[in-house]
């Protein structure tokens, strides 16, 4: 392909990526080194409000942003270097916890607590997702043609459901005396509270994620199963390979690049675990890295938000994803290089 033609083909998508991915990323990167805050003045404010029995007037010392002649809030932006990162990582507290070898104290620091959960979540769901996806693909591949359509449709269903809605459904099935909790209680003949401690919520969240993403693995594996070399399978059969040996020595090697591909996607997605935390309202028990960014960004009752720390936390999350992806990316790279030669 001529260079010019190539350029016209990829040009639009490169431009869109620059505008919608690279530019915001640079902006977030820059913002993580600056703090923008309103210029405040301190005033005495008297507020009179209803109090059931009559008016209650209170005087409070409050801060109020200065407004310019046009009625807009005056802000000032200050370069703070790595201050936001230090604040997100809570370095002093971290150092103290590490010096005492106190794992519990370390895991009470938001960032490390979130990192712990995010990593456990990512690495527990990854193999199960692959196994369930492959199992489903093999199962559907062996059913008769007539039921294949409905079987594929049913398997794909969880993947189609909007993540937040899916998480809420699972929450309602289990919270309090939800239908499934009631069932478990009846079965075990004891009181069960699945939302009372962190580990049960974590298990529910992982269960939900596997339920949600396994269909994607299924689709990919199922498509690949259609291209397994029939001759190789038949010769394996003639050589006396049993079902397991055929799977292990013929099918899995054929699927290997896809396993790396799926792991890549899954690592990226689940390191950003977020919907589960919101859907299960788990934030008092368990938090994830992405949720920390969201927490900084959400204005509190008085309208404060921490853009600077949110940016720093977003950058840290991205760095984490890059580190996780090094291995599968190198593997894919090696695969392609081998094929080239």
């Amino acid at each position: 392909m001529r260079l010019r033609t190539f350029f016209w083909f990829v040009g639009p998508s490169v431009a869109l990526m620059l505008i919608f991915i690279a530019a915001p990323l640079v902006s977030v990167f820059v913002q993580s080194f600056y703090v923008t805050s309103p210029v405040l003045e301190t005033v005495e404010r008297e507020t009179c409000a209803p109090g059931f029995l009559g008016e209650v007037c209170t005087t409070q010392t409050v801060t109020r942003p200065l407004l310019d002649a046009d009625g807009r809030v005056v802000t000032e932006t200050e370069f703070v270097g790595l201050q936001a990162y230090r604040s997100v990582l809570e370095l002093d507290r971290t150092r103290a916890a590490l010096a005492d070898w106190d794992l519990q104290a370390l895991l009470q620091i938001d960032f490390w607590k979130a990192l712990r959960f995010t990593l456990v979540f990512t690495f527990v769901t990854l193999p199960i997702m692959l196994a369930v996806g492959l199992g489903l693909a093999l199962a559907v591949n062996t059913v008769t043609e007539r039921v294949k359509g409905p079987a594929i449709f049913l398997t794909l269903l969880p993947f189609i459901i909007t993540p937040v809605i899916g998480a809420l459904s699972i929450r309602w099935l289990f919270i309090g005396d939800g239908i499934l909790t009631a069932l478990i209680e009846w079965w075990l003949q004891r009181d069960v509270a699945l939302f009372a401690q962190a580990w049960t919520i974590e298990i529910l969240m992982m269960f939900y994620r596997i339920w949600h993403v396994a269909p994607f693995a299924f689709v990919v594996f199922y498509a690949a199963l259609q291209t397994v070399n029939r001759d190789t399978l038949e010769s394996a059969l003639i050589d006396g390979a049993n079902r397991w040996q055929r799977l292990r020595y013929v099918i899995i090697p054929h699927l290997a690049p896809l396993i790396v591909f799926l792991s890549l996607i899954h690592l990226m997605d689940s390191y950003r675990v977020f919907e589960e935390i919101v859907g299960f309202s788990a934030e008092s028990h368990v938090i994830s890295l992405q949720w920390i960014t969201y927490d900084y960004l959400t204005p509190d009752d008085a309208g404060n938000r921490s853009i600077s720390r949110a940016s720093a936390s977003a950058m840290l999350t991205m760095i984490g994803i890059v580190i996780l992806l090094i291995w599968p990316l190198r593997r894919t790279w090696a695969d392609y290089s081998r094929r080239e030669t």
């Binding site: 507020t47 409000a49 409070q60 008092s284 028990h285 509190d300 008085a302 404060n304």
Partner: peptide
Amino acid sequence: QNGALPYPASTHMGLMQQAIADNIGAFLTS
């Protein structure tokens, strides 16, 4: 009647609220 106070809403109280919300969970559960 028993003297409950109006909620002292303000910018700094908003920040205090957030700080309380972020730490009470650890006290109660871990």
